[in-house]
Computed example of a mutant assay.
Amino acid sequence: MLRVNGSCQVGGVSRLKYSLIGFVRNYIGKILYKQINKAIFYSTVNKTREFTINPWFLTGFSDAESCFSIKINKDQNYSTGWAVGLVFHIGLHKKDLALLESIKKFLGVGKIYYVEDMIFYRVQSIKDLEIIINHFDNYSLITQKHSDCLLFKMAFDLIKNKEHLTIEGLKKLIAIKASLNLGLSEELKKAFPTIVTVLRPVVVNQTIPDPQWVAGFTSGEGCFFINIFNSKTKIGFGTKLSFQITQHSRDEQLMKSLIVYFGCGSYTKRKEGLAGDFRVTKFEDIFIKIIPFFQRHQLIGEKIQDFQDWCKCADLIKAKRHLTEEGLEETRKLKARMNKGRK
């Protein structure tokens, strides 16, 4: 089962990034629980750059990158025969350590772990998870991930009231888990074959609440592209910029609302139907609307470097320097170090 996980550019062509559901953002859910126990706990011995986190930025970024998980594993040390736990986590490439450290500092809870080239911010105690839930009560998610959050909150209330320590309460928890992420493992399905899945809550309000939500969501899901193509110019090449956010088709209405929000762009559904792209390609819209917006409401993390290089290329185009050999070479250097090319 595939999950759309943004997009990237390969050879000048925009391609979807897919991940198995339960692998990257749900990484801890099925694969990482064993690894996380062997992972290196990160403690801020060496100072990293700190970012100021706005609460709406955190919600937008969580709409893009976070995951809510329920753990249920066999354990004879418990009267029900099963151990349960909740985890809120955000997983990024280790280059974004400073961003996760800033989120951890803002919330005041959680720990950070390394697993190979990935780094995870993880919150799991009931006391600490109450802070996470309170944040999203006050600054609500607006993608379909809001449904996951509501299910997670149901599970949290159940565990906080210690209902999970009874077979009846455990079954309620399993019914909630059945609607979350990958659903139930084969082991749980076999052990509890009569469980009736809790219906996923319907996300109704997808109104963009604040510019900082957009900055946070774009820091997670946005892409800034430079496309160099053959043309009839004197140097034989032209340059085109594009700004893109790719999201699962279940959030199509939210993506379409970005057209109204920015006053530009278009939405195109992918042929396979799993996802769609909000895209801005008109240079005037990029220069007058998109760039000033993100200069006022700044991106955070590694993506800010892509945006800065993209802006430099926009300045080259505005001054028509991209039509000179020197400008073309500069454009190529900017493109080469953006997105996947950045070390």
Rank of each mutant, 00 (worst) to 15 (best):
V45T: 12
P55M: 07
Q76W: 05
G60R: 07
L58W: 11
D75P: 02
D75R: 06
N77Y: 01
E65S: 01
E50K: 13
S69K: 05
T80E: 04
T48K: 08
N54A: 00
D75N: 15
G60C: 12
N54L: 05
K47M: 14
S79R: 05
K74S: 08
I72T: 11
S69N: 14
R49D: 00
L58K: 03
I53N: 10
W82P: 07
W82H: 05
I72N: 08
I70R: 08
I70F: 01
T44K: 15
E50R: 14
N73D: 15
T44W: 10
E50D: 09
N54M: 00
R49F: 05
N46F: 06
S66V: 06
T80V: 07
K74F: 06
S66P: 06
W82F: 13
N73M: 11
T80S: 02
D75S: 10
E65K: 10
S79I: 14
D75W: 13
D75C: 12
N46T: 13
S66T: 12
W56I: 04
I70T: 10
N77S: 11
D63M: 04
I72Y: 12
G60V: 15
F61H: 07
S79F: 13
T52P: 03
Y78V: 08
G60L: 12
I53E: 03
E50Y: 03
C67N: 12
N77H: 00
F61I: 07
A83C: 00
T80K: 00
V45D: 05
F57L: 03
K47D: 14
T59K: 07
T52Y: 14
F68Q: 10
T52A: 14
W82Y: 11
T52S: 15
T48V: 14
N54F: 04
F68S: 08
C67W: 01
F51M: 07
S62Y: 02
S79C: 02
R49H: 14
Y78Q: 06
R49S: 09
T80L: 02
F57I: 03
N73R: 15
C67S: 13
T44V: 11
G60E: 06
K71C: 10
T52V: 09
Q76P: 06
N54W: 04
F68W: 07
P55H: 10
K47I: 12
N54R: 00
Y78D: 00
K47P: 04
A64C: 04
L58S: 08
D63Q: 01
E50A: 13
A83V: 09
N73A: 04
E65V: 00
D75I: 04
